[in-house]
Simulated assay, not measured.
Amino acid sequence: MKIRKYAAIDIGSNAVRLLVANVIEDKKKEPKFKKSSLVRVPIRLGADAFVEGSISDNNIDRMLDAMKAFKLLMKVHGVEKYKACATSAMREASNNQEIVEKVFRKTGIEIDVINGAKEAAIISSTDLKHLINSDETYLYVDVGGGSTELTIFSEGKIINSKSFKIGTVRLINNSKEKNKKIFAKVEEWITKHTKEYKRISLIGSGGNINKIFKMSGLDAGRPISYIYLNAQFEYLKKMTYEERVSELSLNPDRADVIVPATKIYLSAMKWSGARRIFVPKIGLSDGIVKSLYFNKL
């Protein structure tokens, strides 16, 4: 048996993450991927990019500090290979190339600013076979700070995939009218591409749905029902930001975005006709590690 160390840096719109994973190789068996360490830093790049159009000097400095820390952590863990990917906020920032060059110059970390299609493809490459039944249909919904990736699986195969500019940070900063238009586009896509399936379930990924699943107390592998998620949405919506932090012990940068995130998952369930959502706790970072290992990145 051999244990190798791989890492992924996910530069999102609401936070920046470092995932260090153990890849366990054993003869005649498929490699196993196990989380060794996950560090999340609340740098909300989307608050800059979606409002001002560029990343502020303050957040550039914070990001540089995070990258330097991540480089040292990867060295301590003995990581042999890693990849850094930036998503929606960096995609839309007018100064993204300047930041990429500065980070590389100061830390040696090369950032790949990926488009929505590539993001969806990486997320879809995560190992879902233990969850997906080959004879059923699923709508995979990954909600981030700046975008939401949708993928339809049927009979174990990817049928369709789409990235939308609808995310938690973006919803908070957009006008109601703009959000209404974006939701209408998502509804149209989901309705069109799921109407032929009689039974469909959701697979949810992202920090917010992971938190809701943890709050539910359900055993791993059990789905959250539409009724429960709707009740949680109404409960969270009635609470103030301060109450979510003090009474539910949510992180300050989670307490505001969890409501719009829940609305996206609920809406996707409603439009697709799904009555349950599975939460396998996988996302872009996991996809990056697996894609790196299998030389797909």
Rank of each mutant, 00 (worst) to 15 (best):
I114P: 07
T151N: 04
S88W: 04
N174W: 14
E136F: 08
N179F: 15
T126G: 09
S124H: 10
K81D: 04
A117C: 03
R105M: 07
S88P: 00
A120L: 01
A89T: 03
I182Y: 10
T151F: 06
H130W: 14
L128A: 06
G156I: 13
N179K: 14
L73N: 09
D142M: 00
N160Y: 05
S88F: 02
I122K: 10
R91V: 09
G78V: 05
G156W: 08
E155P: 06
I122V: 07
D142V: 05
L171G: 03
V76W: 07
K162P: 02
F153P: 12
I182R: 07
D135E: 11
L139T: 10
T107D: 11
M90I: 11
M67D: 05
F164H: 00
K106H: 09
H130Y: 13
V141P: 09
G78R: 08
S94L: 06
C85G: 12
G146C: 11
G108S: 08
K162R: 06
G116M: 09
S94E: 12
A93L: 06
I132M: 14
K81I: 00
A66D: 05
A84E: 06
S161F: 04
G167P: 12
I123P: 02
S125E: 13
E119N: 04
N95V: 07
F104S: 10
E92C: 00
N95T: 02
D65G: 07
R91A: 05
N133V: 04
K81A: 01
N95R: 11
K178N: 14
D142R: 00
L72C: 05
E80R: 08
G108K: 03
R105L: 09
E101I: 00
T168C: 13
L72W: 09
N173H: 08
L131D: 10
V76S: 14
R91G: 06
D112C: 02
G145I: 14
T107N: 06
K162C: 02
D142Y: 01
V100W: 06
K176C: 10
A86E: 06
A84S: 12
S154G: 11
T148N: 05
T87K: 04
R91C: 08
K106D: 13
A86Q: 05
S124K: 11
S175A: 08
S154F: 09
V113P: 08
K185I: 04
K81C: 00
R105Y: 11
I114L: 04
H130S: 15
Y140S: 14
V76G: 03
K106F: 05
L64K: 12
S147T: 01
F153S: 13
S163C: 03
I123F: 03
Y138L: 06
G146R: 11
I158A: 11
G144M: 04
R62N: 05
I122M: 08
R105K: 14
S161W: 02
C85A: 15
D135V: 03
S154T: 15
V169I: 15
G145V: 10
A89D: 08
K68P: 00
K68V: 04
K181H: 14
T107M: 08
I166D: 02
E136K: 14
